[in-house]
Design a binder for these strands. Structure first.
Lengths: 234, 234
DNA sequence: ACAAAAGTGTTTGACATACACCCATGC
DNA sequence: GCATGGGTGTATGTCAAACACTTTTGT
């Protein structure tokens, strides 16, 4: 028995250059105390009326991550935001047009910074927990990305990317409760974040609330980056 | 500005079906108290004498995971072993033959069960920590897979897949020390595993050691599966 | 008897959990 | 003054870390 191997035998490859690669972006936002995701209405007849992730075919001259950032930029106008590759999805019949393998990314954006392009009125933010059906295998992709985010957010303070620069501890807690779908104890939550020591007290307060205003903080990104570099052994 | 989107606009896709998808398997084994990985010598002129992961082009009629299992089976004769997708690698020039996106998997095998095929004398087990250079971007892929394994092994007891059915606690500890590249306290390690309660005492002992023989255990896979199902909400 | 590794318990500190009251503001 | 959420501390349990001596076997 002879085993073909792309890494050792080149000649036979050309027959195989027939697949398409796409990227699909799970763009998370946070608003009204809910985790949201940006979706577009599919206009494929196969998925009429269903919602779809934002994706595109990867161009021949860009690498995968570049394609994912391009999709994000084209749809939200944002650049340089938090993004992480999750995994590839490649079921044989996942796309009606042929064999399309998609690489899923999720990104965390400040929903206030997103200005939906005027030509994109078919774009909408959806509460993640209310989503029932989606086009393609996008429900599965969304589920996998959400799980990854849940894991990530308890390991590293990436949640700040979903918040405005200035935020109260209540907002931060609401965020974590929305992502993890749990209720958290307020005092213990505060203790944990103060102990982490990534919060900078801005000596400002909430405005226009009809109760005692909360103090505002910002995330100490520089300190986090520095400490994280260290832990990576640089 | 108009944004092409594979999920909504089909007509333009055909131009893009020109990429190849491959799978690359990081096949981990454990022997002589070292974490090993199964590699093949590359015979591409570009990578003469360099070592390469085991991979192959995905066939048009199989999904990605099937392709990965096929590579594993063809190279090791093994089936149904532990495997996990890690992520896609798709740098523009990562493959000399053209645009090849590869999906990386790692798998954990009992190295004693692997019978290297006779036609595969170019296959060798390498100690992970001794590997310097590899063909393609395989060093990066290996590194990413190792990190994923390190994460996984502290969350779930997947390490058993690397050991013989019967093992001593010393072997188990050596395994964890090799994977995580740390020294562990023997008493705390034993405590932790006994507390997990996934070890079945076989009432057998090591043979032919020139010191007090250790007791042998096996992993209670059924119990683990049952508890894990529960935690997934089934 | 000696070498070599197996086996075992206790103490300590750190961290997560649970829980209730006073405070500042707008109305 | 009342409704609303902001802000705080303590007690308890759980878990990880540190640490040294006895036991069993082969030679």
């Amino acid at each position: 028995m002879y085993t073909k191997n792309i890494n050792t035998h080149l000649i036979e490859i050309q027959d195989y250059f027939k697949a398409a690669i796409s990227v699909d972006c799970v763009i998370f936002g946070f608003d009204e105390n809910e985790l949201k995701v940006l979706l577009i209405e599919s206009d494929l007849k196969e998925f009429k009326g269903k919602w779809s992730l934002l994706g595109d075919i990867m161009h021949p001259d860009e690498d995968i991550e570049t394609a994912a950032y391009r999709v994000l930029r084209e749809r939200t106008g944002l650049d340089g935001v938090y993004m992480e590759q999750v995994q590839a999805f490649g079921g044989i019949n996942r796309h009606p047009a042929g064999r399309v393998i998609t690489i899923a990314y999720y990104s965390l954006v400040n929903i206030q910074h997103v200005e939906l392009k005027t030509h994109s009125n078919e774009l909408h933010w959806h509460a993640v927990k209310d989503i029932r059906q989606m086009a393609f295998d996008h429900k599965e992709i969304l589920g996998t990305c959400l799980e990854r985010l849940q894991h990530k957010v308890i390991e590293q303070p990436v949640g700040f990317n979903l918040l405005p620069k200035k935020f109260s501890l209540r907002e931060l807690q609401n965020l974590y409760e929305a992502i993890l779908d749990v209720k958290l104890d307020r005092r213990n939550f505060r203790k944990k974040f103060f102990a982490m020591d990534y919060l900078i007290d801005l000596n400002e307060e909430e405005q226009e609330v009809r109760h005692r205003p909360a103090k505002l903080y910002k995330f100490n990104q520089e300190k986090f980056d520095k400490q994280h570099k260290k832990s990576l052994g640089f």
